[in-house]
Each structure stands twice: as structure tokens, then as C-alpha cells.
Design a protein around this nucleic acid. Structure first.
Length: 557
RNA sequence: GGCGCUUUCGUCUAGCGGCUAGGACACAUGCCUCUCACGCAUGGAACACGGGUUCGAUUCCCGUAGGCGCUACCA
């Protein structure tokens, strides 16, 4: 058993988009397989015909493609153990169901779902098992001829696994150690349904894992309770000696409150629970995806890997290849992990800032477009292009090799919009920087500064400096912070000379004029407290944009 | 209800009988500075509870409590 080639599988059912928890399960399977030079199989478990969702299979495949987790074989990847779609393996399952039937390990049952429901209502904690099967309508209680007659007449039936009570079954779990449960609490699970001629999960799973020579089953903790059943099935088939090793992963829990992570939590708290955006074919509902939200696949993979596993040291940032080397099932934690989407964003930040500037441009284009910055002429396009490069340089810290606090490309806009759009309002009440730096005489000082600026011909950083620096010394006016308010609208942005040189003389003067005219107090309580205007309503002024500098317009120079 | 798994800072976690219980995210403060950010420094913050075992328990065992899962002709 130990000398077999490692083979693991990820086997989702195509009932909808791939949950992020499923992604982690697949990732761990991948890491384990690669570390041991083994194969990762992609199998589709579509044995529940009623829950099939069109497009789900393609979605799952595309998700892993984006995430960069490759499969070695399976649906869409080829391989010698196919078909890999369970709905295409009906004949195989029927054959093995018969083996169990012939060996007396399973039996036919004719009880209808309605009858069973009724029974469950009548008898508290009713369970179809050794204690009750003698009272039900099945091949153990009927004469052989009747069973054959019913089947021949086309009556619907199921095949149930005959579980012998009173036996302790031990599952040796790679993460949890030995888990022992008594067979008496297990019910006679349905293995096969005549209605759609398909097996249930349990039978199909065991048969496939055996036939596909799977050596390790790494799956979510929700399967732990049925693991003993699976052990029993391997025994019933006589496959106990090649039974895979089991590892049951802890679940992903919702960030706040109790319970496991669900789609709802994502919608409510504003983070995706699916790798890709998903358009539900039935309801038409759209669920957000990590890709569309601006996450990098490496970041998602890295973050997910650490949710329930760690390399045993303090290292947090690592590539897939590094993880392959470091991964260890015995270092997986046993308890569920709350999904911390704030930290997910931090991981994205880490990977985002490593990307070269050229990678930023397409993302930036999208952000600009979303915010109405679109060039309509050749000339404008050239201007936008230049601005973009400048802004990217700025986000890089203007040569300081420092990176801005950007977790997603969309964060670029609030951080850099002032490059493209003049401020149209000043939130004095809510902005400490404005309150601190815009005083009663500020407008007057800026007015003075403007007259000096108007006389400058060389608008380069050096050119401005040569005039303004002496002027500040002479007058004692320190204009920078107020100047910043006028040009940016708040306490943000690069060095003022840099910014001013970039915006150009015309635009700078225009923005200053706008702020000065909006002034008396830059519009709020502080200037005239006694003139008890309604503070809450006057603190936020959006004076009409002066002529050309309308909101959203590209500033051309 | 039954069965199983689980329990270290707010969160993810390190720890595998003796530690000032470590790191990361988040938060706070300081430094830097014409602002923000970055960076650096500092700080607050945890062994669920009760019994054992032991010279000694965060660590091992048993309970209790909390959390999670399963309990379908779903996976």
C-alpha cells in the first residue's frame, strides 16, 4: 500500500459555483499530490440528477484554470481511468451493486419516500437499520419470487447497504488520528436508486476511488461521520487492503457569528465566496467572484492555504511551489477557521505591489473608465497615458521604493483622483486636515501666492521653487498644506511642487481660484461660530464648478 | 435528541511536560514628514471551566460548558 503511486482526487458536484472552501480542499489535494510526485484527478460527481446545474462544470474548470491549480487527469484533462463523470459510469456501478447484492451485503427495498416520511413522523428517531429493516418492505422480508416480480413489473426500488450492528469501526484519519464509532448508529444507507439508475454518493465514491486507484482521500470534515460507512463498504467489496488513507479537513466558518461560511455571508459583508463571478442560470442572480473583485490568483491561493495549515514557522508569503515543498497534513489544524477577509485583502496587497508597473496599466485603464475618465481624442488619450504613468509612479512612492496602501486596483481611484479631477467640495467638518490647515486668513494668503505664481514662466519643480521658496521666507507664509487643500481637496498626494508641476500652471491657478472663491471659511462653522447657521448642513459645500473644471472632466493642459 | 469532531490574543495560528506563551492581520501610540501612504519603533490583547496524572501542566487523561458537522432515494 505504501509503495503505490500517490493519487488523490477533487470531486465536486456540479450543483452550482465552486465554493471557496472547495477551492481549499482542491488546493490541499494538489499540494499533497505534487509533494509526493502523485496525480490529482478531477472527477464530476453528478449522481443527483435533480440538482444538476448547467454551466457549473465549466465554471469549476475555469476557476482552477484561473487559480493556477492544474489537474493531471479527469473531466477535460484526459486519463486512463475514465470516464470521470459519474453519470457516464452507470454500468460500472450497476455491476458493483450486483456484487454486493449477490454477496448478501445489500438488499432491495421498496418502501416509497412517502412511506418513509410517514414512518419518520410516527416514530421518533426512526432509522432504517438492523432494528427496523425486518418491519419494512424489502427483499429481506419478502419471498424471493415477490421481489423478482416487483422488479420485473418495473416497481421503483432502492438498494440498501446491510450494516451489521454492534461493531466498533475505526477510521484512521491523517489529521485527527483514530476515530471510533459503533456500527449500530449507522443506518442502512441507500446505495442505488432504480428511478434514475444511479448510485448515491457513497457507492459511487468508493467504487470510483477504488477503480481509479486513489490512495488518499482528502476532503471536508462534513464527511467524517460517513467515513465509517465508507470503511465498511471497502470491506464489503473485499478492498480493505487497498483502502485509501483518509484526511478530514476543518471547515471554513463565517467571519462573524456562528456557522459555516455561506454565500450569504459574502453578500452581506462584501467579499466573494466564489473564485469567479457566477450568473445563476435559474434566478439570474449574480454572485461576485475573486477574479472580478481584483484579487490575484496567487494571493487567493496563498491566503487559502494558510486557513487551516501552516508551515510550522512564521512564513506567510509563499509560492505554490514552496507550499508543495512545505505542505504537511499533520500540520493541518483540527478546528474550523473563521474566514478573515481583511487578511485576504492584505495578502492581495502583498502580491499586488510586487507586480511590475506594466501590469498595472490595464487594471488602471479599467479603474479610470469606471470613473468616467475616458479619452475621446488622440490628444486626450496621450494626456491620459502620461498621467497614468505619472500616477503609477506616485503610487510607487515617487522613487522612494515605497508602496501605497492598495489592496485592489479599485483602491487607486480614491488615492489618485485628484490627478484627473479638480476638487469640487471641501468636507471641513469631516476632514481634520482641512480644519487644521485652512484658517480665516488662508484665502488671503493663497491670493497673494497666486499673484506670485502667475508671474512664473518656468513651471518646472525647480522653476517654481526658485520663486516660491524665497517668497515664503520673505512673507513668513507657509502655504503648502492650504495649497494642498486647494489642489487636492484634502491631505493627500505627492510633494506640492511635484503635483503643481504635473497639473500645470493653468489648472493649478484654476483650482486655487475655485477654493478661494468658495472660501469664507472654506465653508463651515469654524469661521463664524456666532452666526449660528445650521452647522450640519453648511459644513459640506459643493460650490458650482467654475466654468471648465467640471467634475469628471479630464484636465488637459 | 443521537453520534462524531473541536476549544491559545478580536481573527489566523506557533507551542508537541518546565517558555517573560512567539508570529501575522486588525487596532492604538510614537518617529519620519509640506499631507496621505510606505517604512521603522512601541503598546494593549489569549491558554473555556472543573477534576485528576505528575516534582511540575497551555501541553496527557476524564468530565462540564461552548462551537462545528452529520443524522435524505444531497453531495
Amino acid at each position: 500500500m505504501t509503495d503505490r503511486k500517490v493519487r488523490v482526487r477533487f470531486a465536486p458536484s456540479p450543483t452550482g459555483p465552486l465554493h471557496i472552501g472547495g477551492v481549499r480542499t482542491a488546493l490541499y489535494n494538489y499540494l499533497f499530490a505534487k509533494q509526493h510526485g502523485g496525480d490529482l484527478i478531477f472527477r464530476i460527481e453528478d449522481t443527483d440528477s435533480t440538482r444538476f446545474v448547467p454551466g457549473a462544470e465549466e465554471y469549476i474548470i475555469e476557476s482552477f484554470k484561473w487559480l493556477g491549480i492544474p489537474f493531471d487527469e479527469g473531466v477535460g484533462f484526459g486519463g486512463n481511468y475514465g470516464p470521470y463523470r459519474q453519470s457516464e459510469r452507470k454500468d460500472i456501478y450497476r455491476k458493483y451493486v450486483q456484487v454486493l447484492l449477490d454477496g448478501g451485503k445489500a438488499y432491495y427495498a421498496f418502501d416509497t419516500p412517502e412511506e418513509l416520511n410517514k414512518k419518520r413522523e410516527e416514530v421518533e428517531n426512526f432509522q432504517y437499520d438492523a432494528s427496523t429493516r425486518g418491519m419494512m418492505r424489502n427483499s429481506l422480508t419478502m419471498p424471493k419470487e415477490e421481489v423478482e416480480r416487483r422488479i420485473a413489473e418495473g416497481e421503483q426500488y432502492v438498494v440498501r447497504f446491510k450494516i451489521e450492528p454492534g461493531r466498533d469501526i475505526v477510521v484512521d484519519d491523517l489529521i485527527r488520528g483514530e476515530v471510533k464509532i459503533n456500527s449500530s448508529i449507522l443506518d442502512d444507507k441507500v446505495l442505488y436508486k432504480s428511478a434514475d439508475q444511479l448510485p448515491t454518493y457513497h457507492l459511487a465514491n468508493i467504487v470510483d476511488d477504488h477503480l481509479m486507484e486513489v490512495t488518499h482521500v482528502i476532503r471536508g470534515e462534513e464527511w467524517l461521520p460517513s467515513a465509517p460507512l465508507h470503511v465498511l463498504l471497502y470491506e464489503a467489496f473485499g478492498w480493505a487492503d487497498t483502502m485509501p488513507r483518509f484526511a478530514h479537513l476543518p471547515l471554513l466558518l463565517k467571519p462573524v457569528g456562528n456557522g459555516k461560511l455561506s454565500k450569504r455571508d459574502g453578500d452581506k459583508l462584501g467579499f466573494p465566496v466564489f473564485p469567479l463571478e457566477w450568473h445563476d442560470p435559474k434566478s439570474g442572480q449574480i454572485s461576485s467572484g475573486y477574479r472580478e473583485k481584483g484579487y490575484l490568483p496567487e494571493a487567493v491561493v496563498n491566503f487559502l492555504a494558510l486557513l487551516g495549515w501552516n508551515p510550522g514557522n512564521d512564513q506567510e508569503l509563499m509560492t505554490l511551489d514552496e507550499m508543495v515543498k512545505l505542505f504537511d497534513l499533520s500540520k493541518c489544524s483540527k478546528n474550523g477557521a473563521k474566514f478573515d477577509y481583511v487578511k485576504a485583502a492584505w495578502f492581495n496587497h502583498q502580491y499586488l505591489i510586487q507586480r511590475p508597473d506594466t501590469d498595472w496599466c490595464p487594471a488602471f485603464d479599467k479603474v479610470l473608465k469606471e470613473n468616467g475618465i475616458e479619452a475621446t481624442t488622440e490628444q486626450e488619450a496621450e494626456v491620459v497615458r502620461m498621467m497614468k504613468l505619472k500616477v503609477i509612479e506616485y503610487t510607487d512612492g515617487l522613487g522612494n521604493k515605497k508602496k501605497r496602501n492598495i489592496s485592489f486596483p479599485s483602491d487607486l481611484w480614491p488615492l489618485t483622483k485628484f490627478f484627473f479631477v479638480a476638487p469640487t467640495e471641501f468636507d471641513k467638518e469631516g476632514d481634520k486636515f482641512i480644519r487644521k490647515n485652512w484658517k480665516e486668513n488662508t484665502a488671503d494668503e493663497l491670493q497673494q501666492m497666486m499673484t506670485v505664481l502667475e508671474g512664473i514662466d518656468d513651471w518646472s519643480v525647480e522653476g517654481q521653487k526658485a520663486i516660491i521658496d524665497p517668497w515664503t521666507e520673505e512673507t513668513g507664509i507657509k502655504p503648502w498644506n492650504a495649497w494642498r487643500v486647494a489642489l487636492v481637496g484634502t491631505g493627500q498626494g505627492p510633494d506640492m511642487y511635484e503635483l503643481s508641476a504635473f497639473l500645470g500652471k493653468e489648472e493649478v491657478l484654476k483650482r486655487m481660484r475655485f477654493a478661494i472663491e468658495a472660501d469664507p471659511s472654506l465653508t463651515s462653522p469654524r469661521g463664524g461660530v456666532e452666526s449660528s447657521n445650521n452647522e450640519k448642513q453648511t459644513n459640506k459645500v459643493s460650490a458650482s464648478p467654475l466654468g471648465e473644471t467640471g467634475e469628471g472632466s479630464v484636465c488637459t493642459r
